[in-house]
Amino acid sequence: MKRLGPIIALAVIGLLIFVLFKAFGTDPHEVPFLLNGKAAPNFKIKRLDNDQEVTLDQFKGRPIVLNFWATWCGPCKAEHPVLEYAWKKYEKDAVFLGIVFEDNEQNTKRFLAENGWTFPQLFDPKSTVAVDYGVSGVPETYFITREGIIQGKVAAPFSHPMQIDARMKGILQ
């Protein structure tokens, strides 16, 4: 018993330290994202500028950047210059697509006409694409490899070009 006591005490303390370490290492408000490394769900939604149907599959073989946003979202507008910078820098190597969700078409079209956006903007009227991608806020940007595999998402607005450059390296390989 004299030998067993310290062993049990150490085991309990070790377990507590492990639980505390795991808990302190994570943000309790962060919504988990498990689609990392999995095939990006296909979709079929229309472009806002010409009403043409667009599918993800039609871009297979090219890296894709998917940006989910809405016109009422201030941080989405704030990150717009960074996305524009990235599109200009990488447009020959990657496809950039904006997906507007939780918004209405009229609002969005007016917003785009007033502000002018360069890369294609698609409209997700019932947020079905957002649900399929496990979106948990706005804006969110997904990086998809040329094989169609999701290589992470950024669930926050980009504030500096370097942030997006680092992500682009991953999908351009």
């Binding site: 009422w72 979202c73 201030g74 989405c76 609002n107 009227p125 607005p157």
Partner: peptide, 23 residues
């Protein structure tokens, strides 16, 4: 950015339009 909606409302930057669910 779950709080983006709240921030947007506080800053008067707009609102998320409410959408009807399926029947």
């Amino acid at each position: 950015m779950t709080f983006a909606l709240l921030v947007s409302l506080l800053l008067g930057q707009g609102y998320a339009p409410q959408r009807q669910g399926l029947d």
